[in-house]
């Protein structure tokens, strides 16, 4: 497939926490890095994120978590698989304790980013994951 479309990334927060500084900064940075960013306010429900990813044909979903909302990410992964979106790459950023990080990676999360990570590193990962997804999907339409 032609690579004309820049990476399309959903930047979202699921669960109850509302602290959205991280997600806004990341969204703005990815935009400035030339990507198409679908930004949602906090408190998204998992079903809504799946529908969003479906309709937007997103390459990557970035979930920001400050409190403990990352504990819902395994449920998101299940819901994506159930909707046939196993190709969509999920990354998580925020305060994620090490043991939870293992849990998320086992659930299929591609990368976990912690506070202090360079935004450029996130952008690079998104580009790479987008390439992975698109080559995975090549010719399957």
């Amino acid at each position: 497939m032609a690579e004309r479309r820049p990476p399309k990334v959903i930047v979202t927060k699921i669960g109850f926490d509302g602290h959205d500084r991280g997600s806004r900064v990341v969204a703005a940075y990815l935009r400035d890095a030339g990507m198409e960013v679908v930004y949602t306010p906090p408190w998204q429900e998992i079903g809504a994120v799946v529908k969003l990813a479906t309709e937007e044909d997103a390459d990557v979903i970035g979930v920001s978590s400050l409190a403990t909302d990352h504990l819902l990410v395994p449920k998101l992964m299940d819901a994506l698989r159930a909707a046939g979106l196993e190709d969509v790459q999920v990354i998580v950023g925020g305060i994620v304790p090490p043991k939870d990080e293992r849990l998320l990676l086992e659930a299929g999360v591609a990368r976990v980013f912690h506070p202090g990570v360079a935004l450029g590193e996130i952008a690079e990962a998104v580009r790479m994951l987008t390439r992975d997804r698109r080559s995975l999907l090549e010719g399957t339409l």
Partner: peptide, 10 residues
């Protein structure tokens, strides 16, 4: 009314 995973975690 909420997902039990999140209860009391913060």
């Amino acid at each position: 009314e909420v997902p039990p995973e999140l209860l009391g975690t913060c």
